[in-house]
């Protein structure tokens, strides 16, 4: 039997298929989020199942997470992304004490008990400043790809100061910097620093090590280094950082599925 974790995030849908008994990852997949979220998730799931020669009778249990979790009818239950990231990261890196997750519209800092359960967490409010959405706006405005940002920022001699936290105001600020002739690498480095400072203002600098970085933004080159610099700590980026939420959901699904099997036997 397999368990399935579906993370319906704001920018991407991530799916992890897990062997329910060995907890071995069988497949992972990712697709861009769009208007028809549920269909998008189902298409991705069907593709992964087909590629791995799995059928619906192989499915033990499915859990959906992410902000779109309640729209995934294929799931047996839902769990928040906060719990899922904690479970996913603890499984991969069991000594983790703090998870920093920066996604498309959320940034959150989760502190863990030694058994991997959530001790406390902070999350941005309604504003998407300091998230992946912010980076996208900047990349678009500067005409660069997200993947180029790290390399470009690496060449920055004097990172610009970006003081606006609001994405809309920050864009205006960047237009002003461009008009003054500030070099794009300095702007990018400034934006990365601003995202990290925003995160530090949320956590209050009391991130207990080891700190693990997850979410789509962890894939953007240069972000890990910027975060480590601002926090003054070593940061480890999780393997497949976009997948930890879906992995956590799949692990929880496996746990629930096993409990169910036990109940059925007894």
């Amino acid at each position: 039997m397999i368990s399935i974790g579906i993370d319906a995030g704001s920018r991407a849908i991530k799916i992890v298929l897990l062997d329910m008994d060995t907890l071995e990852i069988l497949a992972t997949g990712i697709a861009d989020q769009a208007v028809r979220q549920e269909q998008q998730a189902l298409d991705l799931l069907n593709r992964l199942m087909g590629e791995n020669h799995l059928g619906s009778t192989d499915i033990g249990r499915t859990i959906a997470t992410g902000y779109g979790r309640n729209g995934i009818r294929a799931a047996d239950s839902t769990v928040t992304e906060i719990t899922c990231h904690a479970v996913g990261v603890h499984h991969l890196l069991p000594s983790t004490k703090t998870v920093i997750d920066i996604g498309g519209q959320d940034s959150k800092v989760i502190s863990l008990h030694t058994n991997g359960t959530v001790r406390d967490f902070v999350m941005n409010d309604r504003c998407a400043a300091g998230t992946g959405c912010f980076l996208e706006v900047v990349a678009r405005r500067l005409g660069v790809e997200l993947q180029q940002m790290g390399e470009l920022a690496g060449g920055s001699q004097a990172p610009a100061i970006i003081s606006s936290m609001c994405v809309v105001f920050a864009e205006t600020e960047i237009i002003g910097l461009l008009a003054e002739g500030t070099a794009p690498p300095n702007i990018i480095a400034g934006v990365q620093n601003s995202i990290c400072s925003r995160l530090v203002s949320m956590t209050g600098r009391n991130t207990c090590p080891p700190v693990v970085f997850t979410g789509g933004v962890a894939l953007v080159p240069g972000m890990e280094a910027a975060l480590a610099r601002v926090l003054g700590q070593t940061i480890t980026t999780a393997p497949q950082p976009q997948m930890t939420g879906a992995l956590g959901a799949a692990l929880l699904a496996a746990r629930q599925g096993q409990e169910q099997q036990k109940e059925n036997i007894s």
Partner: peptide, 24 residues
Amino acid sequence: TDYSPSDSARIATRIEALFESIRS
């Protein structure tokens, strides 16, 4: 928060996560 409902889904996520951690 304020009186507008624009952040209800986000508030719900945080509250659910809190309850999940208590139940765990």
